[in-house]
Amino acid sequence: MTAVDGVSFDIARGETLALVGESGCGKTTTGRMLVRLVEPDAGTMAFDGMDMATLTAGELRGLRQRMQLIFQDPGSAFNPRMNVATLIAEPMRLAGYPPAEQRARVAELLPLVGLAPEYAERFPHEFSGGQRQRIGIARALALRPDFIVCDEPVSALDVSVQAQVINLLTELQRQFGLTYLFISHDLRVVRHVATRIAVMYLGRIVETAPKAALYATPRHPYTRALLSAVPSHRPGVARTRLADIGEIASADAIPSGCRFHTRCPHAIALCREKDPELTTIGDGHEAACHRLDDLAA
C-alpha cells in the first residue's frame, strides 16, 4: 500500500506549514517520515541544507535531536511508571546528557509550558488531557529542537483547553524561533496557526497556498468541499449544502487518474484517465486539478 505518494514541499525556518486532510490521506505518515519514524521508500529530504541521505549515522542522530514530535494523545505515549521529571528528561537521558543537566533543564521547562514545579514528582495519570499535552510539549522541547511535527496536538482536548495549548505553541514558536509542521483535520485551528497550508488527499498534496489565499480563494474541489463542510458559528446563515460526495476511497484501491474524481462533482472523462499535476496559479499557490480554469473563483 502506498500511503504517501511523491509528495514535495518546503517549510521555511520559523513558519508553520499545516498539513490538512481526512483520515487516510497520509498526513500523519508524512509527518513521521520527516522525523524519521517512518523510512520513505523513495525520495529525498533535506534539513537545514543537508541532504539526509548523505549523512553518516552519527550525523543523522545529531540531526534527529533537532526534530521532535508532539502527538495527539501524549498520555498513550507515556510510560505510566515514569514521573513527569523523568518523562520530560527522557530524550536527554537517551542522548547521554548528565543527570544534573537533565534536572536543570526540567526545572526550566516546567514553567515554560505552564506547569507548576511540584508536578515534577507526579505521574501521568494524575493529569488532565491539557496538562498531559503540556508535558508532551516540554518533552519535545528538552533537546532544544528547531523543528517540531505537531500531529493533531489539540484534537483530543476540550474546547476551553484547546485555546490554551494553541497559545502555548504560538508563544514557544515566537520565543525560540521554532518551525512547525502542524497536522490537523480542523480547519478553524489551522486558519489560526498556519503560515501556509498543504491539503492532502489519498497520499497526494492536491493544493498548497499561503493561508489567506487558501481560505479566500480555494481552487481544488476537494479543498472547497472541506471548507464548506465546517459548521459555521452563525446560526441562521445557511452553509452551502455539501453535495453528497461520499467518503474517501480506500488507500489500497487508489482510483485511476485524479484520485478525487470518484467524489468530485466536476469530474470529466479526462479526470478518470490522467493524474493532474500541481500547477502554479498564484504566488505560492498551487493546485492539482484538470478543471482549474473552468472552476476559477
Binding site: 491539557g130 496538562q131 476540550d158 476551553s160 485555546a163 490554551q164 504560538t170 480547519l187 478553524r188 458559528h233
Partner: peptide, 20 residues
C-alpha cells in the same frame, strides 16, 4: 476561544483560565 473560520483572530486566542 474558538478560532474563527471567517476572520483573522488575534495572535493569541482568548482563553478560559484553568480547567474543570
Amino acid at each position: 476561544s474558538m478560532p474563527s473560520l471567517e476572520e483573522e483572530d488575534p495572535a493569541l486566542l482568548p482563553t478560559i483560565a484553568g480547567m474543570v
